[in-house]
């Protein structure tokens, strides 16, 4: 079970949160110009890394706000969490070598 760090409320048990999947997926700016293939990729295809993953969580039983979190999907190590619109240090390629 994870101990997640809400940027507004602090560390809370995972059961207070709901998961929102991969973070930083931009909605197509000019939707009509996108092909079916682009739309399929946008709606259905997600990263599935063995390594660090930036993902969205919502503090459903707390402040009910969304935030981003960087977590390692093999070890569950949490690098940190940050508010929407904030930037968070990128992970160097070396750091992302997993297992």
């Amino acid at each position: 079970m994870l101990l997640l760090d809400c940027p507004w409320c602090g560390k809370r048990d995972q059961t207070e949160f709901s998961y929102g999947g991969e973070a930083h997926i931009d909605r197509p700016i000019k939707p009509v110009e996108k092909s079916d293939s682009d739309w399929g990729q946008y709606v259905f295809f997600r990263a599935n890394p063995k390594g660090y993953h930036r993902e969205r969580w919502m503090h459903a039983q707390g402040c009910r706000r969304w935030f981003n979190l960087m977590r390692h999907t093999v070890t569950n190590e949490i690098k940190g969490s940050y508010k929407p619109g904030e930037t968070f240090p990128p992970v160097s390629p070396k750091e992302n070598q997993n297992d």
């Binding site: 079970m1 994870l2 993902e55 999907t73 093999v74 070890t75 569950n76």
Partner: peptide, 13 residues
């Protein structure tokens, strides 16, 4: 569990 994980173990909840 809801989140991606390769650890072959899930949450106690």
């Amino acid at each position: 569990d809801p989140q991606i994980s390769w650890g072959q173990r899930g949450g106690f909840f």
